[in-house]
Design a protein around this nucleic acid. Structure first.
Length: 347
DNA sequence: GAATCGTGGCT
DNA sequence: TAGCCAAGATT
């Protein structure tokens, strides 16, 4: 492995092919020494955890418009931030985002730590995000390893060990390519390469700037890397969601602060269990006595199970908090989907 | 190490 | 259609 030639080829490609993204310094402002705002780097990295660029981008624009600095975000009410995050998923990120912003504001004078170790101590900032912010915002030669870097590295070195067991080996191999020069560009070049060229299913090796250095390409089946262990099948669960309206308003509940969809505004629901619910059971579990009618069902896939949610609707009162329909925009997608279906009276 | 934790686009 | 997958962190 000629690390110097590989680095030179990839950085040259990045200089020309870098994607223009909302959290990056614009192409006309790019120059040695010009670094992006750490707040924007951190915010983008948290939003991008397990999330695609097209999905995260509009949220980034909305957040930076509403809360231009980390201190602005730290001062925002929980409910506003959680509602603004709705639809982005992995809601622990939003809770940790606020905790982190408040820690930076209260304990660091509104200034992000400029070392990997300092960043790693913040809520919601793990090994990847600490390394990414240190490299991109603070020019630290950190080893930034995400799913892209794992895939690119597994292919460059034709690593036979399957994921996730291969993670330490891949991280060590990736670390062997990090240098003091242009650490932020290096990290982003690897990730851009993974996203645009070295794609999971169909790598575009004929357009790859480092094909000459790729051991997986020489095997004839680069798409077979990284190897992966077989995954467990997702179980199915069943639940009831209750759409209780009072005129133009809808009853909503705040979910407990931990666990699935924690801290988010939601429709009242039954438990989600492995056996389907009978109508009698569904009525017995209702959050308020009312003339409940079954009006539909929605399917929703979570990371580790799929959910069938039967929809019961009624008009009436109850010891519940009623919200205008506009508040539905602040619900997680599963409940927005269920509420729309229930209110439209599908079936 | 293994589980938990969302969503939407792609194949 | 039904998985597969994405700039992971936390417990």
């Amino acid at each position: 492995m000629d690390a110097a030639a590989l680095r030179s080829a990839l950085l040259a490609w990045y200089d020309v092919q870098a994607r223009t993204l909302p959290w990056r310094v614009g192409p006309h402002e790019r120059a040695p020494g010009v670094k992006p705002d750490p707040y924007r780097v951190w915010l983008s990295e948290v939003m991008l955890q397990q999330t695609t660029v097209p999905h995260a981008a509009p949220y980034f624009l909305e957040f930076t418009h509403r809360w231009p600095t980390v201190s602005d975000l730290a001062a925002a009410p929980d409910a506003e931030v959680m509602a603004a995050w709705a639809g982005l998923g992995y809601y622990a990120r939003a809770r940790n985002l606020l905790a982190c912003a408040r820690a930076v504001a209260a304990e660091h004078g509104g200034v992000f730590p400029d070392t990997e170790a300092g960043l790693l101590a913040l809520p919601g900032v793990g090994p990847y995000t600490a390394a990414a912010v240190a490299a991109i915002a603070f020019d630290r030669p950190a080893n930034v390893v995400d799913g892209n870097v794992e895939r690119v590295t597994a292919r460059l070195f034709a690593v036979e060990e399957p994921l996730p067991a291969a993670k330490p080996q891949l991280k060590a191999l990736a670390g062997g390519l990090v240098r003091d020069g242009r650490p932020g560009d290096w990290a982003q070049a690897l990730m851009d390469l993974g996203a645009v060229i070295c794609k999971p299913k169909t790598p575009l090796c004929e357009r790859c700037p480092v094909a000459a250095h790729c051991a997986a390409l020489r095997t004839g089946a680069p798409e077979a890397y990284p190897r992966r262990s077989a995954k467990a099948r997702r179980p199915h669960r069943y639940g009831i969601a209750y759409v209780l309206t009072r005129g133009e308003e809808v009853a909503l509940v705040r979910r407990p602060p931990e666990g699935l969809l924690g801290g988010m505004l939601a429709l009242p629901t039954s438990d989600w269990r492995e056996a389907p619910w009978s109508l009698a059971e569904a009525l017995a579990a209702a959050p308020a006595p009312a003339d409940w009618r079954e009006v539909g069902e929605v399917e929703h896939g979570f990371t580790h199970f799929t959910l069938s949610l039967r929809l019961l609707r009624a008009e009436g009162e109850g010891e519940l908090a009623f919200h205008p329909r506009a508040a539905l925009q602040g619900l997680p997608s599963v409940f927005l989907k269920a509420a729309r279906a229930g209110l439209n009276g599908l079936i």
